[in-house]
Amino acid sequence: MTFGVDAKGVYPIAATPFNADLSVDYDSVDRLTEFYQDAGATGMTILGILGEAQKLEPEESLTIARRVIARSRVPVVVGVSNPSFAVMRRLAREATDAGAAGVMLAPASHLRSDEQIAAYFHHCVEAIGPDVPWALQDYPLTLSVVLSVPMISRIMKEHPSCVMLKAEDWPGLEKISAIRKLQATGDLRKFSILTANGGLFLDFEPERGSDGAMTGYAFPDMLVELDRLHREGERDAAHDLFDAHLPLIRFEQQQGIGLAVRKYVLMRRGAITSDVQRSPRSSLTPTGRSEVDYLLERLARKDPRARL
């Protein structure tokens, strides 16, 4: 299975489940894989920031990748960003050999100048191989690296193997429009744009030209329905659905505890057994959990998927 410049739809960013003893919960990895597919996901993205990839041993990452790919009926994109190009190379090559559709690369946080950024992605593509399709992650809020529209254009021109932009700058609506304008005039080649930021701006991103979502909101089935409504031109229905979920989406976006909220909801939905994280980690207080429960109860009045 492959993905490319025409990729559309919803590629949920998968969490990585852990047992109470902090070992990888492979049974929950299997269940979560089915959960995303049953939700109607177009593809899956694993071992990203949400997936706590930086807390995994290289062998754990490889085992998770092989396990998800083996169970998946949809394209799987594997996050391979790593300070070591050797580790990046091994994960990228072994994941694609196992059947991954492609990989995702993010800029290293120490990069500042455009020349440093350009050189870094040259070395990344050299490491993974020019035959491996990849998605460029643009996430300055967490990675502290600013990818301007001209810089993104340069990366896309220099690396035909980059088939997708994971757009999660904030604000990012005008950035999407600027990229699509360059493509419309023939000044920039075609590539897919999937958006993230927890889905916080999915009410307007499709109208600006995004092709779908690549984010980790704990209701991927809602993301699939929202994407369908946008594609069918049901603008008011799409905004109504988004507005119903917005309080929970906003709660998930809190700095520091966002992953704790997301894992807690996934646990409540039966997708994973435990919401435990590896260190450095955050956790919900009993009050925080009760607030999430309250938001789920209110959401269930408008969307029965939240009736847990």
Rank of each mutant, 00 (worst) to 15 (best):
N197F: 04
L143K: 10
Y120I: 00
F85P: 04
Q183M: 12
M164N: 11
A86I: 10
A184R: 09
R112K: 14
A95V: 10
Q116W: 07
L143F: 01
P140D: 10
S109L: 08
E94C: 05
R180W: 04
G129I: 05
C124T: 12
N197K: 01
V145Y: 04
E94I: 08
Y139L: 13
R66Q: 15
P160V: 08
R89L: 05
P150G: 09
L173W: 11
V163M: 14
R180G: 04
F85S: 11
L194T: 02
V80H: 03
D187Q: 14
K157F: 07
Q137I: 03
K175T: 11
N82F: 07
P75M: 12
S72F: 10
K181D: 12
L105A: 14
M156Q: 11
L136A: 06
L62M: 15
T96N: 07
G99I: 13
H122Y: 09
L91P: 05
E158M: 10
A178C: 02
G172L: 04
V76D: 08
L111F: 11
A108I: 10
A95T: 06
Y139R: 04
P130Y: 03
E115V: 10
A70L: 08
I152R: 00
I64S: 12
I128T: 01
S61I: 04
I155N: 03
P83F: 13
I193R: 06
A118K: 03
R93G: 08
E59W: 14
I117S: 03
F85C: 07
